[in-house]
């Protein structure tokens, strides 16, 4: 009886310690995130104004706003997604629905994983030599968008793959069992079920793309360009690069410090908004799949 009590007590203590550690770590992570956010908000909120987000930078980028950088970043996100999303989704469909298990699948998978591990500056260099020089796009939104698109391709492929794999095999069997072809099954049954989760891949890529600096460094980003891009062959400013510029190599770093924090804050807000938007989209489609 006594030893049983002891055992129960020991179990309880172990349980409490483990639980305590996990709780502490989770809270620490959230706290850390809040500290970083608070730091940027406190330092940057002062410069945020309607003018800051809608005006051109002036006076050697120490005054005025960051409008062209915001527009540039949005253009780059859009361009990269337009490229990476269809390509990534179709690649994932091919891999999960069509290729049989074997060495081809293994090689493609391994390569996709390798692609995810390539440092972003290497993508930048690659984008410069292929899109900017070889294909002659020049420093442009097209070149930068494609480079960013390549960068997030593995993310899109992997999340799409996971979402397709999560679709129960009996849905496919039921569809094929009715004499449907593989493509009919994939497009009319599997994709609609997986779609809400595929959107998650989109969310992750948007966040990633809007914050990357290295890949756009040699492919699109302009140091100072106080006008909006008018075509995909134009250069553009972009938030992360603009932040880098005014924080390290601007005309007057001290004077533009507050603006740097403001830029960081705007960048974070854009990522946040796109995440919320994508989440809402995901919920909407999740419901629609059920209601449809």
């Amino acid at each position: 009886m006594n030893s049983e009590n002891k055992l129960a007590r020991k179990k309880r203590i172990t349980q409490n310690i483990a639980f305590g550690i996990f709780t502490a770590i989770s809270y620490a992570i959230v706290a850390l995130l809040f500290v970083i956010l608070a730091f940027i908000v406190v330092k940057g909120i002062g410069v945020i104004s309607w003018e800051f987000i809608t005006a051109m930078p002036t006076n050697g980028m120490t005054e005025g706003g960051i409008f062209p950088a915001i527009v540039g970043t949005l253009c780059l996100v859009l361009a990269s997604i337009i490229f990476a999303f269809p390509v990534g989704v179709f690649a994932a469909i091919y891999m999960t629905e069509y290729v049989k298990d074997g060495w081809i699948k293994k090689v493609i998978k391994q390569m996709t994983n390798n692609l995810a591990g390539v440092p972003s500056i290497v993508f930048g260099l690659f984008g410069m030599s292929l899109f900017v020089n070889k294909l002659g796009f020049g420093d442009s939104i097209l070149a930068g968008g494609l480079t960013l698109g390549l960068l997030v391709l593995p993310v899109v492929i992997r999340t799409t793959e996971e979402s397709l794999k999560a679709v129960d095999a009996t849905f496919r069997q039921a569809s094929l069992g009715l004499g449907a072809t593989k493509w009919q099954t994939t497009s009319k049954v599997v994709l609609p079920i997986a779609f809400p989760n595929i959107i998650t891949g989109l969310i992750l890529s948007i966040g990633r793309v809007s914050g990357e600096t290295a890949p756009i460094l040699f492919t699109v980003a302009a140091y100072f360009l106080p006008k909006l891009p008018s075509s995909i062959f134009d250069q553009a400013m972009a938030l992360p690069y603009h932040l880098y510029v005014i924080a390290t190599s601007g005309t007057n770093i001290e004077k533009s410090r507050a603006m740097a924090y403001g830029t960081a804050l705007i960048l974070i807000i854009i990522v946040l908004i796109s995440n919320l938007l994508a989440n809402a989209l995901r919920k909407y489609y999740g419901k629609k799949v059920k209601m449809n």
Binding site: A174, S175, G177, L178, G179, A180, T181, V189
Partner: peptide, 28 residues
């Protein structure tokens, strides 16, 4: 497979309307 229909262990209707579930096999 059109000639040999199949019913599975777990009910697995498609994420479509009741009508479209039954019509699916005809449409494809």
């Amino acid at each position: 497979r059109k000639n040999v229909g199949m019913v599975f262990q777990k009910p697995n209707p498609f994420p479509k309307t009741i009508y479209e579930n039954v019509a699916y096999g005809l449409r494809v």
